[in-house]
């Protein structure tokens, strides 16, 4: 009985004010609107590429056709791309350069970041800042002196030149983000490893690399993206089609004078975008922040 009285009294005394649930719903609606806008915005180019790549050359050239509809879908451009011309060669070149550059970058920057973040030595902090500053020099300025160096080494119009110069773009940034990541690993972890009997290399290999894996993967993704999408350097240093990578190969082989082979260009660009997509999808699963949880208190 007393409960009933209390309820009645409460209804009399209190008024309902505000609604947390309603507020949350309003926020969510706006979030979805913003997200929908971005999804449409960013999916626009690839969808357009896909549609165009499935049209015949005649349909692409037809000014009366609807650019968003395919009336007579065909895989002709894909077939030609993969069977004629140097597209597959360019694909292979891109893979060679990218794999080599990612490997070189990771070896150099993991070692550099480890020593810069953990071994205090004379000038280490100046060096760490210097590494980052080199990243700030734009490549459009660098390619002129690099041209002299590459020429001097006799590597002009040679795929290997790319493996040599891409790391100038990737190493500074990768080193820099990994210095940050390594510095966030508690110092006690390496001290524990030292006392447990590890030397510096074992400490790096058995403790640092596994613990810093999310940071290392982030750096790998960066190095991969830069190498795969690099345009300026191959444009400047590679001239013959056999030496070219995808980015410049598509442009130089599929555009002849003022003739744009739009169907093949779209198909080629779309296929070229697949490896980054796969790498992202694969690495993202492992790219889980907070792998250090449980090492120390917190």
């Amino acid at each position: 009985m007393s409960a009933t009285t209390a309820d009645t009294a409460a209804q009399g005394i209190y008024q309902k004010a505000g609604s947390l649930r309603g507020e949350r719903r309003r926020v969510l609606i706006w979030a979805y609107i913003a997200l929908a806008f971005f999804v449409v915005f960013f999916l626009f180019p690839p969808v357009y590429m896909l549609i165009t790549s499935l049209k015949s050359s005649a349909e692409i050239a037809d000014l009366n056709g609807n650019p968003w509809l395919v009336t007579d879908p065909t895989l002709q451009h894909y077939r030609e791309l993969l069977t004629e011309g140097n597209y597959l060669l360019h694909f292979r070149n891109s893979i060679i350069v990218t794999v080599a550059v990612v490997a070189i970058t990771m070896v150099i920057s993991i070692l550099a970041a480890f020593s810069l973040s953990r071994m205090r030595f004379w000038g280490s902090s100046v060096l760490a800042t210097g590494v980052f500053l080199t990243y700030l020099v734009p490549e459009t300025l660098l390619f002129i002196p690099l041209f002299q160096i590459i020429g001097g080494l006799g590597l002009y119009n040679n795929l290997w030149a790319m493996i040599l110069i891409y790391p100038t773009l990737t190493v500074p940034f990768c080193t820099w983000i990994m210095i940050g990541y390594f510095s966030s690993i508690p110092k006690e972890l390496d001290e524990a490893a030292l006392i447990d009997g590890a030397n510096h290399f074992q400490m790096l290999w058995k403790i640092f690399i596994p613990v810093a894996l999310p940071g290392i993967l982030a750096a790998t993704i960066f190095a991969f993206t830069v190498s795969w999408g690099q345009f300026l350097y191959p444009m400047a240093f590679l001239v013959s089609s056999e030496q070219m990578v995808l980015t410049t190969g598509i442009v130089s082989d599929l555009i002849r004078g003022d003739t744009f082979q739009w169907g093949k260009i779209m198909a080629g660009a779309l296929l070229a975008a697949l490896p980054p997509l796969l790498v992202y999808a694969f690495l993202m699963d492992y790219y889980i922040a907070g792998l250090t949880a449980g090492a120390t208190k917190g």
Partner: peptide
């Protein structure tokens, strides 16, 4: 003599367990 050759073991305030 480096820590690994001193034949000591240490327990840290924040445990310092290897998380992986």
């Amino acid at each position: 003599i480096p820590p690994r050759d001193r034949d000591i073991a240490m327990v840290f305030q924040n445990y310092a367990l290897y998380p992986h």
